[in-house]
């Protein structure tokens, strides 16, 4: 345990501390430890992991709804594209840039950029449609210089480089563990076809069992994307996601 005592100033202490304060101030006027980034003429370089505006790759999307489910702010709503698939739209009037969606996306369809300085005129414009998220958007850039924070054992200093920072992060999209949906108890299947209805890749089909004259559902592992929606919706809870061998 450490005790902290509060100082009790004598007149001499007061004079000393007055002088200390004044001399520190004077020193800073002469040789300031300035750390100002002159935004918008300069821009601070953000790390590659910076969580900013998100880009979307429709090729990789398996339409699993997980980004929408995980979004704490409910900013991601799935919108039906002309092809009938559902793709995410992001409402930047709600988005908190936690990037749970980016971490969630099993196909690696969502990726981060370093774009974060945007001002919208209306709230309606803040709902960014899927079509707008595919290509990197153009933002107003006035910066000619990039500022790096250099922290060494002495101090924080700014390193200025005359270049225009690339805001689009080039990192390989990382996919989740490949999974596939299987039925663990086909005997209990009541053929409600929910799995078929919810499946977007058309992996589920109904098979007539000729012997017992009943219909059972079958999942085609080749077509299954492992989105897990059928597992979630199955009314008998007999579907499981397992690792794709």
């Amino acid at each position: 345990m450490k005790k902290v005592a509060t100082p009790d100033y004598t007149v001499a202490d007061k004079l000393k501390t007055h002088v200390a304060a004044l001399s520190t101030a004077a020193k800073e006027v002469v040789l300031p430890l300035n750390i100002t980034t002159h935004y918008p003429r300069e821009r601070k370089r953000q790390p590659a992991c910076f969580r900013g505006f998100m880009l979307f790759d429709p090729e990789r999307c398996i339409s699993c709804f997980q980004c929408s489910f995980v979004c704490p702010a409910n900013a991601i709503w799935m919108k039906e594209a002309p092809s009938g698939r559902y793709y995410p739209t992001v409402d930047h009037g709600k988005c908190i840039y936690c990037h749970f969606c980016v971490d969630t996306c099993p196909g690696g369809a969502l990726k981060t950029t370093k774009i974060h300085d945007i001002a919208f005129r209306t709230m309606d414009e803040m709902v960014v449609m899927t079509e707008d998220m595919v290509e990197p958007p153009a933002i107003i850039r006035e910066d000619k210089v990039v500022v790096d924070y250099v922290i060494d054992k002495e101090d924080l200093t700014l390193k200025r480089t005359k270049e225009v920072d690339e805001l689009i992060v080039e990192i390989a999209p990382s996919e989740g563990v490949p999974m596939v949906s299987v039925c663990v108890d086909r005997g209990s299947c009541i053929a409600c076809k929910v799995c078929d209805k919810v499946c977007e890749s058309g992996a589920v089909s109904s098979v007539k069992d000729e012997e017992k004259l009943i219909v059972k559902m079958e999942i085609d592992p080749e077509k299954c994307t492992g989105c897990g929606l059928c597992v979630k919706e199955c009314s008998m809870q007999i579907l499981r996601l397992v690792r794709r061998e």
Binding site: P58, A81, P82, S83, F120, E131, E135, P137, I139
Partner: peptide, 15 residues
């Protein structure tokens, strides 16, 4: 608004 989106045609497969 300080951002301009580039609209892209989404992939159109069979309905």
């Amino acid at each position: 608004t300080t951002i301009d989106f580039k609209k892209v045609e989404l992939p159109f497969e069979e309905q």
